[in-house]
Structure formats: C-alpha cells, structure tokens
Design a protein around this nucleic acid. Structure first.
Lengths: 248, 248
DNA sequence: TCAAAAGTGTTCTTATTACACCCATGG
DNA sequence: CCATGGGTGTAATAAGAACACTTTTGA
C-alpha cells in the first residue's frame, strides 16, 4: 500500500447517518412521521427516524432503507436536502447526518409490525417542537425545501390518494405553503395546466354537494417536462410586496 | 461506557471531505477555480479543491478553510449544495464529500504562495469537462444551484468588483443563466428594484461611450429583505413555454 | 469619420388578482 | 329546509416581452 493510501486510511473518521423527514397529508393537515426513541441518548423522546449508513450502501439507498423498514413503502418520492455535521450535534461522538425528505400517501402506510415502527406516529407539522439533537433544524430545512420544490414540481400528488378532489388539492397546497389560496384562481390555474384527468366520478356519502374526483396525469407531465415545461404555482409574490409597502 | 456507546463507536466509519466549487467572473465569462492534483489518485489532473474535514471542525468551517488556504479570502459567500457518497466514488475507500460553492471577486484573488494554490487556475465553466472522481457531477450540481439562487437572491454582486456597469451585470447574469437578456428590459427591472447606487462616475479609457458605474446597496437590500421583499429576476418562463408550443 | 458599446420608451400580450352567488347532497 | 362544502366568470391591474435609434468616446 502506498504512503498516500496509508495516510488516507488513518485520517479522521466519523460515523455517518441519514435522517428522513417523512411527510404525509391527512385530515387537511400536513404531517410528519416521528418515532419514539428506544435507546440512548434521548430515550423515549419523539425524533426523526434515521440510521447508520452501511459500508456498502449509497446514500439514497440508505435513506430508502430507513423509509422501507419503517413504513414498508418503496418507490416513494425522496430528495436529499442538507447535511448536518456540527461537532457537538451528537453527545456520543462525531456524527454527520445527511437529511432527506420523502412524501408518502398516508392511506398506503402500514405499520411494520416487527420494526422500530411500532413506536412511530404521525404528528401535525404545526405542533411539532423541541425535537432532540438538531432535529428541529433538520425538520425546518426539509419543510423549507418542500415548500420550494412544490412550486416548481408537481409533488403534491405524491401526498394524496390516487383519486382526489380539487378542494383536497388546494388544502394540501395551503398547508405546505402556509398561506390561503383563492378557490377560483387555484382551480383555473391548476386545470389550465392540463395535468389532471377528470374521472367523471364524484364523492359519495358526504353531507353536501359531492365533489368531482380527479387523478394526476403523470404520463402527460413527463411528456411536457421533456419539452421544457415547468410546473409553477404562484399567487403569493404580490401579497408579500403589498404587505411590504403597507409596512413602510 | 454503555453498550450503546460501544456499539456506536464500533460502527462503520468513513472519511469525510468537503469539495468547494469556487466561482468567479472575469472577462465576460463565468469561471471556476481548479487545482492540479499533486497526489494520487488522478495525480496531475485538474480537479475541484477539497480536503478532509478535521475532527473538531464544523462543515462550513472546513469549507471556509479550504477556500482561505487556496485564495487567502475570507468572508465570501458560501453555500452548502449536496453531499456525494457513492460507495465507489473514491478508489482508495469510502469517502463522503459535502459539496459547497462559493463566489469570489476575481480581482481580490491572490495566489497563496506556499499552498497547493500554486497549481490553481481559473477555467471557463463552459470549457471544463472530464474532471476526476465524480467532480463533473459536483460541478453541475453547484452550477444548477447557483442558477437557481441567483434568481431569488442578489448573489451576482458577490462576483463583481465593487463598482460595475450595468452591461457587466447583465453579462454576468447571462453567463449564469445561460441565456440572453434584453438590454432595455434588464435595465428597467434591475433599476426599478432600487438596489443600485448610481456612483455618478463613468468608465475611463474605453474606446466607446463610457458607461456609468454603480454599486450594490447592501444596506437597503437587508432592510427590504427584513420587510419580506424577495429579489426576483425572471425573463425566461415565457420563452420556454413558447419553445414548447412550437415544438408540439 | 468610424467602430464600438451606452443609453433610452412605448406598445402589446399575458398573468395575476379580487370578488359573490347558486348548486347538490345528507341529515 | 337547513347546513355544508362544490362549483363557476369577469373585469381591473400588473408584469413581461418585443423592438430601433441616438449618443459618446478613442483610435
């Protein structure tokens, strides 16, 4: 072995992990899946699910594994967000963690009976606070990234069941963007994109006029995307500007 | 030491590095600073500057250190972008690297005489190819991030000398966004933001009508930002959409 | 006097916003 | 028949895109 290789192998080593912010949407509310820690440190605290990365495992693969062990789900949307590595972020030593977020349809989600997932639970994102380690920072960072991405890519559909109403879709966007949207403008915009298929079905058993059901036309989206189309959902810039002017 | 701690310390360990994509702008062209590697592997190849993260060092600190050792510059814009950790990205072992980009004013840049920087050189971004390891992917990822950020934050000014002309600013944006901008629309937009100070000076010694010099009003920007203003530079969505329609 | 880049306004088109009433269902 | 959420259109405003000529300087 060359000197360089020897030096290389003796160089500083640290543990590395992935943490996964798993978002879901249910009951008109954006949720995040937390687990109750079964070990030190911070035993019995709610925390983000995460685990060590195996020696022969790529980063994305590790993030997928964490997700699958916990929820049994594969093929979900997954995105790397940011790496956290403050010297003292973990009390037992240097641990650098790569944060991912993923989007799951809660209706598909099943507790995996023989895993740490027994202690997993969905929490409303607006109510989560005081997570251990730097998990609050990780959660904020992932939420910000979601907010940003949802405006330029059709991610919302990853969080909804295959058939959904326009009002459900609107509420989802409102939860993510933390703003209110105008019903008519939202519908006009989303329908004008020509990415929803009207299923010509309606809700049943609701105590009001039943809503039409739609599904996302993934095939058409892929085709548009290949042609340079970018999904863009706005309605917020002007509000901010006005707020600014009033404030001056 | 508890069992958990023992297990923890015996867990798989890997080497951690930062790689830094250092952008500069000169001569109407976006540049990236590469170093000629002095060691194996890929000895004598041009590559991104990077180094191991010290045991007692935060990630951002390591990225800043790499930059300072190479250029002597402090207090430059620096942003974490993405972490690369494919199992086989480094031939000598598992190396996970956290990619940053930074923006420097080339006019401030001095070679650091006693460093690896002796072998550093600015390369036009359009001409760089075939970098070792996965450095081409890292470069693309950072360039994409720059493209994205430059639209929503006034980063361009980090790359220009303190006094600049509107044409220089326009060319900078054109290099980063890889598109052409309309001169009148660009000026209208950028001046309407009220973030440039007209220095009431002009260029000297140019063989054409001398241009006015401006500087960026950082104080005003910070004030606007606190009030919710977002810097936004566009002029490209519609072009894309038209291209798409023509293509159908 | 020529070459080279600076500087400057208007019109047209498209996107965004604001806003209020009737409809279908279950209880 | 009432409560609940579903569904619809238009007008005003703002932002973006297209476009051509005159000015100032050094060589």
């Amino acid at each position: 072995m060359s000197d360089v290789q020897t030096e290389f192998q003796n160089f500083f080593k640290a543990a590395f992990t992935v943490d996964n912010v798993i978002f879901g949407f249910d009951d008109g509310d954006l949720k995040v899946l937390l687990i109750k820690r079964g070990e030190m440190p911070y035993e019995d605290n709610w925390a983000l699910p995460g685990y060590f990365i195996n020696e022969d495992e790529d980063l994305d693969t590790a993030a997928k594994r964490v997700l699958e062990e916990l929820t049994g789900l594969r093929n979900v949307f997954l995105e790397q967000v940011e790496t956290f590595g403050s010297v003292n972020r973990h009390p037992f030593g240097r641990v650098i963690t790569i944060a991912y977020f993923s989007l799951v349809k809660i209706s598909n989600y099943k507790l995996q009976p023989d895993s740490i997932a027994l202690k997993a639970k969905w929490h409303s994102i607006s109510k989560v606070r005081d997570l251990p380690f730097d998990h609050s920072d990780i959660l904020s960072s992932c939420f910000e990234k979601l907010k940003q991405l949802v405006r330029i890519r059709p991610l919302g559909f990853e969080l909804l069941p295959p058939k959904f109403t326009l009002t459900e879709l609107q509420h989802l966007y409102e939860s993510i963007l933390e703003t209110e949207l105008d019903k008519r403008n939202f519908r006009k915009k989303i329908l004008s994109m020509d990415l929803l298929i009207d299923l010509e079905e309606t809700q049943e058993g609701v105590a009001h006029r039943p809503a039409r059901l739609y599904k996302f036309d993934r095939k058409k989206y892929e085709q548009f995307r290949a042609e340079g189309f970018t999904f863009e959902l706005k309605e917020s810039r002007k509000k901010m500007r006005k707020a600014m002017i009033n404030h001056q």
